[in-house]
């Protein structure tokens, strides 16, 4: 204690009191969430994470094995290719999460009249009522050697482009990444659209007077002002894609060979198929570190680019 309380100037004392009082209320606001999470999320996560250093099988008392799991995971012959696949997926996935919804949000936002905008927004949101497994079923059939894509290529006399999309190691990974055209994630669309609506009218007026319309407006006004939304979408896309393994699991099983294997799939298989929960947790810990690093990096980049633009 460098400064005893009575020595504080009255204003500062009031500030501290106010801060404490306000802080007290804030704790009250956060309390229900924290209690719930402590029981249903933190404790289970703590159990799971600390067992990355054990041979836990999900039932018996785990034995401490040190870094053995990590060593095994790093030396797994499939891990190298899986990591590269995942890096490509995260990179391209970031673009797919941002660009198509942004373009559609801009198109809708520039439509005339709220009714029309409402109608089109609804059009893009309705598909989420169908379970995502149906989407995989649909695209699995599109990619078949006798499927819609090859049929279309045949009709267009582009037979040379026909491929065994999912069973050719050269096309399988990209086929999975680019599955789901037109890639309009409903949530990202809503978020960006709401962001566009929040841009102050004067800014748009001023830009228009400056002659900034169309693409230039998007580039100079919308993108910088959508910063928070874009960062959030980017963040969620990175986290989501690092952990994603459903389409490889359902459509290719990680094959041909390891062409579509990603670390999250290896983790899922070691846990759910082989019951090696300790080992799976060690992969999870490594993915967690990767995500944290990517997150910090993207935050920093986001801030840098924003600083440069404004």
């Amino acid at each position: 204690m460098t400064a005893p309380a009575p020595a504080l100037p009255p204003a500062a004392r009031r500030g501290l009191l106010a801060r404490l009082r306000r802080g007290g209320l804030a704790y009250l606001f956060v309390l229900p969430t924290v209690l719930l999470l402590a029981w249903y999320a933190y404790y289970p996560a703590y159990i799971a994470l600390t067992r990355a250093f054990t041979d836990w099988d999900g039932l018996n008392t785990p034995n401490f094995t040190g870094l053995e799991n990590f060593r095994q995971a790093v030396t797994d012959p499939a891990m190298g290719q899986a990591s590269l696949n995942s890096a490509l997926w995260v990179g391209l996935g970031l673009g797919l999460a941002v660009i198509p919804p942004l373009l559609v949000a801009e198109l809708i936002f520039h439509l005339r009249g709220p009714r029309r905008q409402y109608a089109y927004r609804t059009l893009f949101i309705v598909p989420i009522v169908i379970p995502s497994l149906v989407l995989l079923l649909v695209w699995g059939s599109f990619y078949r050697s006798d499927g819609l894509i090859n049929q279309l290529l045949g009709t267009l006399h582009l037979g040379g482009l026909q491929r065994e999309w999912l069973s050719d190691p050269h096309t399988a990974l990209l086929s999975l990444i680019f599955l789901g055209f037109p890639y309009i994630d409903a949530f990202n669309l809503l978020l960006l659209y709401a962001g566009l609506q929040n841009i102050p009218g004067e800014v748009i007026e001023a830009a228009r007077l400056d002659g900034a319309t169309g693409w230039r407006r998007i580039w100079t006004i919308d993108l910088p002002l959508l910063g928070p939304q874009l960062r959030l979408i980017g963040l969620l896309a990175i986290i989501g894609n690092v952990q994603y393994f459903i389409s490889p699991l359902v459509l290719t099983g990680g094959g041909p060979g390891n062409a579509t294997t990603v670390p999250a799939l290896l983790m899922y298989q070691t846990a759910v198929k082989f019951g090696q929960y300790g080992y799976a947790m060690s992969i999870a810990v490594m993915l967690l570190i990767v995500v944290v690093v990517l997150t910090l990096l993207s935050q920093r980049l986001g801030r840098l680019s924003q600083g440069a633009r404004l």
Binding site: S145, D146, E164, S167
Partner: peptide, 9 residues
């Protein structure tokens, strides 16, 4: 055979 399933799980 068609090749779709040859490399599959």
């Amino acid at each position: 055979w068609p090749k779709d399933y040859l490399t599959a799980d």
